[in-house]
Every structure is written in structure tokens, then in C-alpha cells.
């Protein structure tokens, strides 16, 4: 039985079948891996690059990063504060959902892009106060339109930076490499 299958496989038609089968599996895997790397679709294609290039600070829209654990996503009232004074808001098609949301007073359902892994407690405030810039973890926002996550947040990434920033300070190193600093 096995010999008959093998005989069929080594003839030209069989080899082509093996090739197609291999390609199908490979492309499915490639598609699967690729789809995990794509940024999620947002209700509004928010261009981070335009806002950052207009010299708006990160902390203007995400003020929570300097105050507490979560950076936060701004409410539409904050968008509207600037956008109601701008002519483009009336004409642009991309901004129509914002206008609609403000008029009907329904919140925009933004999709979170960067997730802290399970079992980890993360505090933005300590990192901002410690002199870390936003782009150290979140990438250069002058080049992206819809927010994407350039960095895989795993323990190696965190610990590398913790060890580097502790330097020769032994007490700081103990604190920054302690399990209980992040996991509880």
C-alpha cells in the first residue's frame, strides 16, 4: 500500500501534487503570521504622523502617561477642541466619522493596539518620570499613520532596558530586576 502511494508520488504528476501541497501549507502559515503583525483597523484612520508633525506633544492627547499606569486614549471632545476650528473637518471624508460622533454624542470605539501581556503590572508614570521617551517603546510616530505596534513586549525587552538603565547602581539594579516589581 505504502509502496503504491510512493510510486504514484515520484511520477511527474505526483511531484507536482507534492509541490502544490507544500506551497499551500507554506502560504497559509505565512498569511497567518502576517495577519498577527498587522495593525488593527480603527474606526477613523487616525494619522499619527500628521499630528506629530504639527508638533503636538504625545502627552497632550495621552496625558495619563505622565500621571498614572495607563496612557489613555483621548475622548472625542479633545479631538473636537482643535478640529472644530479647522476648515478641513467640514470637507474631509476621513473626518466624517468624527463629526458624526460629536453630533450624535456617541463615543468612538478605538481598538487598542499595544497590549501589556498578562501577569504584568505596568506603570507609565514611572517610565516617563525615569526619562524614557515614548518612542523608545512605541516607535517613531512621525512615520506611521494608523497606530501600529513595532515592539514585541516580552520580558527580555523589559529586562534589557532595566539592566541598562540601572548601570552601576547596585540598589537600583536589585529593585529593577526584582520579580515583585512587575509581577504580582
Amino acid at each position: 500500500m505504502i509502496k503504491r502511494i510512493f510510486d504514484w508520488l515520484i511520477q511527474p504528476l505526483g511531484l507536482i501534487a507534492v509541490g502544490i501541497g507544500f506551497l499551500a501549507v507554506f502560504s497559509l502559515a505565512a498569511y497567518g503570521i502576517n495577519s498577527t503583525q498587522l495593525a488593527p483597523t480603527q474606526p477613523i484612520e487616525f494619522p499619527h504622523d500628521k499630528h506629530v508633525n504639527a508638533s503636538i506633544q504625545c502627552l497632550y492627547c495621552h496625558p495619563g502617561a505622565a500621571k498614572g499606569p495607563a496612557a489613555g486614549i483621548p475622548a472625542q471632545s479633545k479631538c473636537w477642541g482643535c478640529h472644530q476650528q479647522m476648515e478641513i473637518t467640514e470637507t474631509s471624508e476621513l473626518l466624517a466619522p468624527l463629526k458624526e460622533a460629536v453630533e450624535s454624542n456617541t463615543p468612538i470605539k478605538w481598538v487598542p493596539v499595544v497590549m501589556v501581556p498578562d501577569f504584568v503590572q505596568f506603570n507609565h508614570r514611572a517610565h516617563v518620570a525615569g526619562g524614557q521617551n515614548c518612542e523608545n517603546c512605541h516607535g517613531d510616530m512621525t512615520k506611521v499613520t494608523v497606530a501600529e505596534n513595532p515592539q514585541v513586549f516580552n520580558m527580555g525587552f523589559c529586562l534589557n532596558c532595566h539592566i541598562k538603565s540601572a548601570g552601576d547602581d547596585h540598589e537600583k539594579l536589585v529593585k529593577l530586576t526584582d520579580c515583585g516589581t512587575c509581577h504580582y
Binding site: V174, C179, T181
Partner: peptide, 15 residues
């Protein structure tokens, strides 16, 4: 279940 050197506590790392 390591010992925290920074806080001097017994920890439990759930993951």
C-alpha cells in the same frame, strides 16, 4: 516563589 531582595518579601510569580 523567589525572595524579593528589594522589598524583602516572599513572592509568588503566577506565570
Amino acid at each position: 516563589t523567589p525572595h524579593s531582595n528589594a522589598e524583602q518579601l516572599n513572592l509568588q510569580v503566577y506565570n
